[in-house]
Amino acid sequence: MSSAPHKKALLKVIILGDSGVGKTSLMNQFVDQRFSNQHKVTIGADFIMKDMLVDGRLVTMQIWDTAGQERFQSLGVAFYRGADCCVLAYDVTNSTSFKNLDPWRDEFLIQASPRDPEHFPFVLLGNKVDLAQDRAVSRKKAEAWCQTKTKMPYFEVSAKEAVNIDLAFQTIARAALARESQDTQDFPDFPAQVLLDCGNAKSSSFCSCQ
């Protein structure tokens, strides 16, 4: 019998990648089975929850869709901490977005500073495969990159045509679940709750510690 079969797991997933690769669209397709290229620029990060079944177990996915511009990276730490899986996304018609995967991965590992970074679960999504004629990064190239990153799972997806989205998120959830059940002390630097309230120099005189 598995440990805690009745407890619903809460899995925190973060989506990173260059601006315009379709992070918001991927999330919308997964959550609402809808595609629209009419959504606003993501500023900071958007948050969405979805329940799903993974190997017969009900889990809640808490997905953070982040802003793509490099300027927002310094805010990242607020979002990255406690993640159970990091999804990297690039646009198969945009080679720059592929080249920037390394910096995104590095940035995540630095800011989230998980234990055992080598084995932290990442999943790579190559979006916009519906635009086959504009393809700038081959599947082979992407797969080769994944091989160098402890065999990161890779999916070629299309948020527009709902290609491989469910499959990819099943893998993401499974990876997150495996991580989550492994170690609850994954993020050693995560501040204890009480510190947030009392460590603040500007706290008002009503602070319970005074």
């Binding site: 900071g44 948050f47 805010l75 607020a78 979002f79 709750q193 947030l196 309230d197």
Partner: peptide
Amino acid sequence: VVKLQIQPQFY
């Protein structure tokens, strides 16, 4: 902020 740990970055 204290109980739910909602940070201002989130919104």
